[in-house]
Design a protein around this nucleic acid. Sequence first.
DNA 1: TCTCAAGATAATAATCATTACGATTTAAAA
DNA 2: TTTTAAATCGTAATGATTATTATCTTGAGA
Lengths: 136, 136
Amino acid sequence: MNVETALQRLKEKGYKRTKQRERMLKIFSGQDQYIAAKEILKEFQGYFPSVSYDTIYRNLYMLTEVDILESTELGGEKHFRLSCDTDGHHHHFICTDCGKTKSIAFCPMENVHENLKGYDIENHKFEIYGKCPQCH
Amino acid sequence: MNVETALQRLKEKGYKRTKQRERMLKIFSGQDQYIAAKEILKEFQGYFPSVSYDTIYRNLYMLTEVDILESTELGGEKHFRLSCDTDGHHHHFICTDCGKTKSIAFCPMENVHENLKGYDIENHKFEIYGKCPQCH
DNA sequence: TCTCAAGATAATAATCATTACGATTTAAAA
DNA sequence: TTTTAAATCGTAATGATTATTATCTTGAGA
């Protein structure tokens, strides 16, 4: 997803367009990797020296809520990346060195439904961790 | 895995048999669900009122290290359960209500290797979340 | 059985990510 | 421009986890 689309979606949902949100989206754009709240803080230093974590977390969660970002838990920290919802449902290989991701088209859920009759499936997580070719 | 097997493995690895470790294993035994450190603390209150988190975390990690426990991250907290290594490699459905788990024999990794040539795969996570038949 | 050193535990404090909240500022609608 | 709800800032609190150090326990050998 690009910044323009994201800003438009924000407007549709009734959220205000703030410098912080624009900057946050710029940080995410073009990066196919998950980043954590503290990295946003670091990037913000030059622009909003007095930004608070409250602003960062509130916006990260809000942006996730409206499907502009997607999130996962890596090493005990929540990480975020721009949603790649245009590509349809998919999963990621995540490099444990540089954090870059690669899409995996395959979703294992179709293979397990028959084993889970009577279970109410709400969500699932399929992630592969390792070293990407550049870090390997 | 049962308590006896676990205690034997502990001994083989050169770890001492302590009341706390026995109690910890008893807590885990017979429960096919993931539990967090604080729940161990709660269970310990009656036996070791002055137990510290240090003891709990050190042992949880040590027991995981020697493959007596297996761990996962749920909602920002590390959770542990007795290893079911006798059943071979598998994944879990995890009830978001009661925490109980159900084994899923299927592993999606065989389906994705061809898409990850040049990548060094270290690990993977496949978990399904929802409500089990009892909680549904 | 008794001794003792390595290993464990307890008590406490520190760290780190995350969340909360009153005061102040700002975006954008009227 | 004025208004006002929303957003941000500054700061503090919370909760999980890790670190430190002093004290105690286990288990192997005398």
